[in-house]
Design a protein around this nucleic acid. Sequence first.
DNA 1: TTATTAAGTCAACTGACTTGACTTATTACT
DNA 2: AGTAATAAGTCAAGTCAGTTGACTTAATAA
Lengths: 404, 404
Amino acid sequence: MSDISPIRATSGTNQEGTSAHNRRVMMDALRLNGALSRADLARATQLTKQAVSNIIDELERDGFVVSLDAVRKGRGQPSTPYRLVPEGAFAIGLQIDRHLTRAVAVDLVGTVLVRAEANLPPDDPHGGVRIILGVIEGIRRDLAAISAQSERRIVGLGVAMPGPFGLEEFGDNKWMMPAWQKYPLLETLAAGTGFDVSLQNDAAACAIAERMVGAAHGLDHAVCLYVGYGIGAGLILNGESYRGGNGNAGEIGMALLSPRGSDGAVLEHRASLASLYQHLELDPSEPGLYEHVEALALADDPALLAWVRDAAMDLRWSVQLIETLFDPQTVILTSGAPEALARLILEAMLPLPSSIADRPQRSLPRLQLGITDPWSIALGAAAEPIGRAFDPRFSAILKTRSGG
Amino acid sequence: MSDISPIRATSGTNQEGTSAHNRRVMMDALRLNGALSRADLARATQLTKQAVSNIIDELERDGFVVSLDAVRKGRGQPSTPYRLVPEGAFAIGLQIDRHLTRAVAVDLVGTVLVRAEANLPPDDPHGGVRIILGVIEGIRRDLAAISAQSERRIVGLGVAMPGPFGLEEFGDNKWMMPAWQKYPLLETLAAGTGFDVSLQNDAAACAIAERMVGAAHGLDHAVCLYVGYGIGAGLILNGESYRGGNGNAGEIGMALLSPRGSDGAVLEHRASLASLYQHLELDPSEPGLYEHVEALALADDPALLAWVRDAAMDLRWSVQLIETLFDPQTVILTSGAPEALARLILEAMLPLPSSIADRPQRSLPRLQLGITDPWSIALGAAAEPIGRAFDPRFSAILKTRSGG
DNA sequence: TTATTAAGTCAACTGACTTGACTTATTACT
DNA sequence: AGTAATAAGTCAAGTCAGTTGACTTAATAA
């Protein structure tokens, strides 16, 4: 008989959900605040001292937290702070791009421990997946060499690749990766590795990375404007990555530049690295591209600067759009480009157009530079399973359909 | 000593949270599916029959659900369906606009039971609030006449008014309501009525109304494009109204129409009802305005049609933007304008520009007409407290700081 | 030296969901 | 008809995570 019921409802919860939530709350508090005593945690989470004590005991037994030396601060018994144990959990992150793949292993606090990359044959997911599985296998081996416990403690595999997803229509668009879009990637990787696998677009991965270890750390509302081969916005809304109804939220690169433009020009056509390469007449698959562009940026190459000036016009507009529609605490500029170029773009974007975001009492800048490391997408991909396993969130409380 | 701790953390939860969540889940399931037996609820919510039985007993005792006649369906003991009791709870919704205020009382299922309106003195919140309190007092009396229990069962007061909020900078902008923005409205209304009071912009209120009783019923991702005196987008993300970091998310009326336009033209300047009134040289404070515009729309007035054609160009673009950035399941067009005009606008917006939203296997239209009733904003305002009190959501599970 | 303050533990308690057996009511099959 | 099968719903004991309130420990302030 079928499990599928036509009745729609949210799942209920029980004590398991309560306990799971409270464990997550403890770990999240330690991540945000560094190290806290049981008494601190009780105050911050509004649980009783006793409940916190039990939970911390359990987390310590499970290897997620350890105590530090007691600290005396004023009257009263000294407190014993606890901190997260980085080796408490690991995750693997995978970036799949048009011409290459990068993979990293990170620990519970987001430190990258192992990294590896490989070239991918263009438009050949079947061959590509074989290569990817090899890369992941290598990452696992290297990680096992660092931490003996690691294999048991890997919570999942996060994959990031360019979106949008699920659109057959755009099959022959050069901005997409049509063959990969159709390939049953998650299933294949899950079968090949035994991990839970999740997928997000590269901008979302960037945003998750920024939230774990970057400019969005501790923020509940932030948007990451990612300027890569395409352009996307990674959304952190209410403290979680937002993906929309079909996983394509934030595809700002496809936003029409104007209501009246008859040409259907979209942001991506004018401000992406793809447009830069076209402007400079470079071949995107050329090996030394990154270094070449970096050199041009450092040398203030006039052709590159012309593109920057032009692209920045459109990107300023996109920041105003993001602020107007999402009302984030900050916007973070990230890029697959070298830091020198990202800085040029950022500078050229200032001053920003006025928006609802320029209020006098702001504490965060409207726009700031994020992680400018080519590995940040893989890092964000890896951060996703960590967040899914350890961050407090609604879905973690709900009962899950058993047997599925 | 101070309650305020520099330590940031999510609240923990306990059995109270569990129970509160499960009660909400039950009521939500009944709202979405009509009437369900205890066995149905157990299957849908993944709780045990026994747990459901206890919760339903309690909800019945509290007057939120009642049983219907048993129904026989195939083998086995007949099931006893339960449904929501509309009189189980009430809420009051208040729309504050530039020249008038509307208030409604709704019940648990979103039926409007009482309505009242009054004119407001422009830019005089102090006098305005006195009028508003009088209107609310009248609503309470009328509601008490309908349902004797009502006074005890009012869960809150929702207020909707034009945004954006909290911007001193825009003080003299004619699109805003500067005096009202500065007035401590929530505190005054809370003190004057004794209710919990919440505030949202009118577009958000529309979206909440659509989710409770309109085109977004049962949807988790929907955006409501509200064309009123200004223009806003009401956001339903993950089944909840999204308000951003400062309550201003969705202020699409302030989106710049183009990266290159030197004039700083925004959507609101060209496609709002304010721009229509300007185009037709009408005084927005004129009493019979609504009927006048309705007559023009029904008569296919050329000047009005010209504006419609023009505004629709910009609104089509805004729909593409919304789809690109939020990836909703559907976009709902709502308006403070008469239905005839709203229909003209909708028709003029078709066909929509292509976007990530036009995928072949769609079940919902990309754009549809929402509630075109001038009372829908007040209805949405009232729906907010109902949702806050009864919908399953993360915040409902968390412990709340005792003693404020 | 003593009072005060605060961290943390002990042990009994509570309450919401779970478990598994049982009762009730209906249809399907012989 | 009579019986088996099926499904709704109840009973009563069990479990477990957080709560309660008293207590212990260890520091500083007076």
